[in-house]
Nucleic acid binder design. Structure first.
Lengths: 349, 349
DNA sequence: TTGAAAGCGCTAACAA
DNA sequence: TTGTTAGCGCTTTCAA
């Protein structure tokens, strides 16, 4: 603040060269500059504690070296570790490549133009879009215009660059079915306007259908992003005439709320009701009993998306425009598979 | 990308005025501009889909309308909901005041100049610093220079603007003591270089000392940011000759790891070992048994810090440069207070 | 009430 | 190998 910062002009004067030379040296331009001159410039810059003015540089060079991270339904940021992880790995990648990150939290689609103005004002070079929503009309337009943009997640758009993970919902539900369950409930972890909550719901239905099981709509509950909503949803499920024998929870937070409800009803997990979550939050292995869940490659998604975007900005076309990462169903104790195993062993031995 | 954006010059031409007038109208400058002219300018801007170039505006106006959020020990971002909450509320405040947020994650103090270059390059107008570290030498300097900066947390520096919360460690530990515990263990939730982990440890020692209890160093364990470390620390505590009767965990994630270990040892919570956490993460009310913990005003801290910084940037001096927010000890079941109550009731009735 | 003109600090084509 | 020069698109003082 206080002390006025040096300009490239002053550096040039001190080094006895022109501003052009200063610019070339500091930007490592391929112009042949003698080692000696280069040394002198570097020295002068250091002595004056010179750091180029970002705004001036952006204006002149027409690039900002800044990435925008657009977070849809940002309220989930408070509880959804997936978002934080993507942010974390994106800041890492950005640092490695000397980029900055502007976070643009989008609250509701009504006012979704905040992130648009970021590109219109040319304040960023490219965008990472987290939890993209299919009902967002701006996104496809941006993509069609060829604006550098990588999705973490997926929308139906052929030309979109994206890094998503394979849904393991089917695996999770099928696993429950293989354990003998037919009355499998589902609790969403957000209103279904939230795209990935919706997709989990749809995949749940599909898995059931594939197994020839009639999805009973009475076994579906809609949670929000709180554990409390999982708790309440489970209570309502337990109050019904025909109880589920298993629950596929939209995420781990919901699962933990549900487990608490089951426990309070005096029922055992997994003997009376089996449960599987999603996300593998840090505490999942330590719930009582340990929660079977699906591990999601959040960090890797953030990293790959960042790298893809930066590659795009450098004018390279990424080898694979759409990257699908694997997910992993982690079988712990809440689903009852291990229990089933040990019973089986007992019978066999 | 594709289509070239309109400049203020074109807007001026279309509206039949000068660029000055366009600038005045769009920035609501107090120059008396006729309603009619203003209308025409607005109309032209709209027709051309004009959005001022951010870099040019920054360069000319000498302000960026961008805030920097510096996150120390950013690896915690993945698991520490406190950070995400502050980020969330800061993006909210920023949006309300038409500011952007650049997130600068600081990994280790060695390379802490990344956020410094943000201010040197004048890429931001002010800084919010999350989890400031006392051993960071740059921070005091920045503050002394009068750079607009608000801490979320605290360091020992008289002139610093900050929003922190009252430690409730003492309350938590004292509560455990009042329940009759003397062998109270502590597990940190991060290496003690992490300032707030260290402060929790120190306050734990102080609370014990105040109650005339000799802090037994053998009852202290150092966790990292994982639940796993809490699990392991608890196991090591349980393996010792003299077991603790209560645990004050550095945060809820640690607490949940510890609870799992206690459970696996066949011990009951809180009857055999009582436990109190810190942070009140979303699942805390739903652990088995529900976790007693301390609720922290993360969202409010982010909001107040943001508002304070923006006020500072507007040249106003905030009424209170240092704001301390209250925290709340939430007594649920893991600490045994309710159990004690009910036993008491039984005796009395 | 509006316009002319001088920067803001840098990059980069072109010339030397 | 280095310097001259012309912008980049906007704000803002000053004059009209």
């Amino acid at each position: 603040m206080s002390r006025k910062r040096a300009t490239s002009h002053e550096v040039a004067k001190r080094a006895g060269v022109s501003r052009t030379t200063v610019s070339f040296v500091l930007n490592n331009v391929e112009a042949n500059i003698s080692k000696e001159t280069r040394q002198r410039v570097l020295q002068a810059a250091k002595e004056l504690d010179y750091v180029p003015d970002a705004a001036a540089r952006m204006l002149a060079s027409r690039q900002t070296r800044t990435l925008g991270l657009v977070i849809f339904d940002a309220i989930h940021l408070q509880v959804d570790a997936f978002i934080s992880k993507v942010l974390y790995s994106l800041t890492e990648v950005s640092r490695e490549h000397d980029f900055r990150v502007i976070v643009e939290a989008v609250e509701d689609l009504g006012r979704d133009d905040a992130y648009l103005s970021l590109v219109q004002a040319k304040q960023i070079d490219g965008l990472i879009v987290l939890n993209p929503r299919s009902d967002d009309s701006q996104l496809p337009r941006l993509i069609d215009e060829g604006f550098p943009l990588v999705l973490v997640g997926k929308i139906k758009h052929p030309g979109a660059y994206c890094v998503y993970h394979k849904s393991a919902v089917r695996e999770a539900v099928t696993h429950l079915i293989s354990l003998g369950h037919e009355r499998i409930a589902h609790i969403t972890y957000a209103p279904i306007a939230y795209r990935s909550a919706d997709s989990r719901l749809r995949n749940y239905r599909r898995a059931l259908a594939e197994a020839g099981i009639n999805a009973d709509e009475k076994l579906i509950r809609y949670g929000n992003y709180t554990a409390q909503s999982g708790y309440e949803a489970m209570n309502s499920l337990l109050a019904a005439k025909l109880r589920p024998t298993a629950v596929f929870a939209g995420n781990d937070t919901i699962a933990i709320g549900a487990m608490s409800a089951i426990h309070r009803h005096g029922l055992r997990i997994p003997e009376d009701i089996a449960i599987v979550g999603y996300d593998d939050i840090p505490v999942a292995p330590f719930t009582i009993p340990p929660l079977s869940t699906v591990r999601t490659p959040a960090l890797m998604q953030g990293r790959l998306a960042g790298e893809m975007l930066i590659k795009l900005l450098q004018g390279e076309k990424p080898a694979r425009p759409q990257i699908m990462l694997e997910t992993e169903l982690l079988i712990r104790e809440s689903c009852g598979a291990k229990l089933a195993d040990s019973q089986l062993n007992r019978v066999l031995s």
